[in-house]
Design a protein around this nucleic acid. Sequence first.
DNA 1: CTGTATCCCGCCTGATACTG
DNA 2: CAGTATCAGGCGGGATACAG
Lengths: 127, 127
Amino acid sequence: MDTAWDVYLRACPCRDVLDLVANKWTALVIGRLAVRPHRFGELRREVAGITPKVLTQNLRSLERDGLITRKVYPTTPPSVEYALTPLGASISTHLIALNNWTSANFDEIRQARQAYDAAQEAAPQPV
Amino acid sequence: MDTAWDVYLRACPCRDVLDLVANKWTALVIGRLAVRPHRFGELRREVAGITPKVLTQNLRSLERDGLITRKVYPTTPPSVEYALTPLGASISTHLIALNNWTSANFDEIRQARQAYDAAQEAAPQPV
DNA sequence: CTGTATCCCGCCTGATACTG
DNA sequence: CAGTATCAGGCGGGATACAG
């Protein structure tokens, strides 16, 4: 077939890592785990707004990629602890750097957007 | 309403930047522009597999965020040049760092995936 | 507590064709 | 050359309910 996707993968090895941070939640989850190991319920609460299904999906994916570990404690109320692996910790650094960049440049981006939008409204194309 | 999305935005200012790298192409485009300014057609060729529509969308979004500039030269065959702004250049650094991380750890991730998948197949849950 | 099962929906993406 | 228009599809995400 040689679809656009194939071409794309060939062109960019960074695809995988991008996919890692490309979804809405994983970066958040990693950010939480970078602080300390967390249990499922803790993540569920701290990563506010995430549904259990999606949280599970993310956790599984991260586990599969070797970025986090999943440790089950066979206690009567079952408890599971998720923690960053060294690999996960090493990428969390970059994620945090990216986050810092955002914090530092957020205002500038917001202003750029406002300016852009204002310019658009000022000279709208006739319908 | 207070949807999950609202909660999410409240919880994570990094959302915006994540959205920036969250889609399939923007990081690629920025990567290209980090090398040198490009014209539309050049990007279209170098970012192999992207369709003009999606490329336009990405470019517009990036422009709106103040990460790239769009300069139109009113030549007879119209030509448009896209280039990184200082802001765009500064984030490209992090994107490249992330890319380097991937290159460095790609094998490890691949192995983790294979190991995980093998373990899953070895002990599949009965249907 | 830690998930799983279902169904639904919207967005991003893509293919193709067309225009200034 | 540099886009825009239109239509369709897939995939991730979301809500709710249920289970071990």
